[in-house]
Design a protein around this nucleic acid. Structure first.
Length: 586
RNA sequence: GCGCCCGUGGCUCAGCUGGAUAGAGCGCUGCCCUCCGGAGGCAGAGGUCAGAGGUUCGAAUCCUCUCGGGCGCGCCA
């Protein structure tokens, strides 16, 4: 309906322009909004006020002209001027009720649209380094990214979900070396574990697997391992130099093939764990994109070459620099270190270059807000490559803090005292976790109340919405117990009996759902859907308390049941997009 | 120091991207089942939208500054 009104107004404006009433053709976008106040009709339009200035006319005068030139439409009963120059539209209630029949026909397709026109969108999210299990910080990006992707798909985009696997680089070398050192301990060697190594229990687990399956095959005397290695931080040394030297020892003593075996064992074990976690969270990817593969097929060098040819690379102190300060960045960045290794940034340039080469119309990155400083340099690189950086959209997700019994749960990666995503899921369940993560807009810090998420009460918005859904199932069960059967066609031909205020309210909500999906998808704001579902559930609970559905009158009863089932369908559709289940009983 | 994000009832947040009288939930006060699930509903109190300027028909929303909070500013990833 909203879009139809847009068209009507647009046609009216064209007529006015052709008749010379308006000096210029209308260039902007006609904004039609749902009214908050019943007195203002069902929809309102502010275009007359926007035109007042350029047309040098009184906005109410323009509004009247627009109304006069408005084509007729069967569902539009009245259009009137209000306030400073709003045009209020009143919709025929019976046209509104027809949405019930439509929902019952369209089922789980109701609300979906094709405004994305099949444009190809890539959404990259989570992409946590496979150096350890996912923790609750990753959870928000996971829930948010997945929901944005699903929303975009629902409104007609072709969505490609991708996880960028950092399976190369120093952090992974540290992991591999950590596994090996733990293995040496299991094999009976005594050593001081590096302060910069990965100390989590999962490292012991991987080491145990290695030891169980290969015995002492990978064992080397500690004396040799630590030979020539500079002191660690606790001994007054440098922890970075210490761990780097240990990595070198590992590579030298084990040789390429055996080193790579341990490295991949760690990588694959953790990656499998991450995949399983995300799958349990209802999150699936079209592609897991390997950073290593970028290097292996020469993309990183190709990216640097392209930048060099375009004159944006220079050498200084043995390293290669990208002159990003010529673009949006505050200073230049190293792409190849003086030791010949390309940097993480170089991989990322290559990765983003490839994303655009793969022909996506839009590339969306979901990052933690702590990476915000990284955005300008990636954009700079794309522009330097001659690519269109407006195809890149970076969505920054703020931190989530956990609260238990009113106290903030302290977490730090350093002390290893972080809560894993798996623990959170076990504690509050997938539904509550997915829901709470997207309840707030992404640039807002999130206070995640564990006790609230667990509580099975009205305070808990997840239960509130799910309860509305379950309640409708319960009504349908009651129906047969009371000796009635449900007759959908009979209800459908009597929808005009639904003229109680509560019914009109509820119908109004149901009709708005497609617009909500569109808005949530186009603005990348899942929380809009969350708020809508809460309001929809509220409208239903209010209706439930005010009126009996299972009444003796066959026509009225079936009309009301149709409304209930349409409500149930929209609740299920919306919850489904959030990755939350819609239970039949609770 | 520079850059990005945030500041809305006691608490947690919306506010349809510049529109009409700023809305919810929790908490507080008072109510509602002989009735389909009370895991529900109704009503009430509670706000100088951090502060000060500016932009225009119109600002919680846009611009500038100030104050408060978070996060970034590596030849780490």
């Amino acid at each position: 309906m909203k879009h139809e009104l847009e068209q009507l107004v647009l046609e009216s404006l064209n007529t006015l322009h052709n008749d010379g009433v308006l000096p210029e053709p209308f260039a902007g976008e006609v904004q039609i909004t749902h009214t908050k106040n019943k007195d203002h009709g069902d929809f309102a339009c502010n275009v007359a006020m926007q035109l007042a200035k350029p047309a040098r006319r009184n906005p109410r005068e323009i509004a009247q002209a627009i109304i006069d030139a408005l084509p007729t439409h069967e569902a539009l009963v009245k259009a009137e001027i209000a306030g400073p120059g709003f045009i209020n539209f009143f919709i025929d209630p019976s046209a509104g009720r027809s949405v019930i029949a439509r929902i019952l026909v369209e089922g789980d397709q109701y609300g979906r649209s094709d405004i994305g026109q099949g444009k190809r969108v890539q959404v990259e999210f989570v992409s946590a380094n496979p150096t350890g299990p996912l923790h609750v910080g990753h959870g928000r990006g996971a829930a948010y990214g997945a929901t944005v992707a699903d929303l975009l798909q629902a409104v007609g985009f072709e969505v490609h979900r991708e996880y960028y696997v950092n399976d190369a680089g120093r952090q992974m070398d540290i992991l591999g070396t950590s596994v090996w050192l733990r293995y040496l301990e299991l094999a009976g060697e005594e050593l001081a574990f590096p302060s910069n190594g990965y100390k989590g229990d999962y490292v012991w687990d991987i080491a145990a697997t290695l030891h169980r399956e290969h015995g002492d095959d990978y064992r080397h005397p500690v004396i040799e391992v630590f030979e020539g290695v500079p002191a660690d931080e606790p001994e007054g040394g440098d922890k970075e130099a210490h761990i780097d030297a240990l990595i070198d020892s590992a590579k030298r003593l084990l040789g390429d093939i055996r080193y790579r075996y341990i490295f991949d064992l760690g990588l694959n074990t953790i990656l499998d764990n991450i995949r399983a976690d995300l799958a349990s969270f209802g999150i699936h990817y079209e592609e897991w994109y390997s950073e290593r593969s970028l290097t292996e097929k020469g993309s990183v060098n190709k990216a640097i070459e392209r930048l060099r040819e375009a004159g944006h690379i220079y050498e200084k102190e043995g390293a290669l620099w990208f002159r990003s300060s010529d673009f949006d960045d505050e200073k230049d960045r190293v792409v190849q270190r003086d030791n010949g290794q390309t940097t993480y940034f170089a991989s990322d340039i290559a990765y983003h270059m490839e994303k655009l080469e793969r022909g996506f119309d839009l590339v969306i990155d979901v990052w933690g807000a702590d990476h915000h400083g990284y955005v300008p340099r990636v954009r700079s690189a794309l522009r330097a490559l001659g690519d269109d950086d407006s195809k890149l959209e970076v969505l920054l997700v703020q931190f989530a803090n956990l609260y238990r019994e009113g106290e903030k749960v302290q977490m730090s990666t350093r002390s290893g005292s972080f809560v894993t995503l798996r623990e959170l899921r076990k504690e509050v369940g997938t539904d509550a976790a997915r829901f709470f993560y997207v309840m707030r807009k992404c640039e807002q810090h999130l206070d995640f109340d564990l006790d609230l998420a667990k509580s099975q009460s009205a305070d808990n918005p997840v239960y509130y919405i799910q309860y509305a859904h379950a309640r409708i199932h319960s009504v349908m069960r009651q129906l047969s117990e009371k000796g009635h059967s449900y007759d959908q066609p009979l209800g459908e031909s009597n929808l005009d009996l639904l003229n109680e205020a509560h019914e009109e309210d509820l119908i109004n909500f149901l009709g708005r759902y497609p617009d909500v999906l569109e808005g949530a998808a186009l603005h990348r704001e899942p929380h809009q859907l969350v708020h809508f579902l809460r309001d929809l559930a509220n409208a239903f609970h209010t209706y439930y308390n005010a009126h009996q559905f299972i009444v003796e009158d066959d026509k009225l009863r079936n009309a009301r049941l149709n409304l209930c089932l349409a409500t149930r369908q929209v609740l299920a559709n919306g919850l489904g997009l959030l990755g939350v289940s819609a239970p039949e009983e609770m």
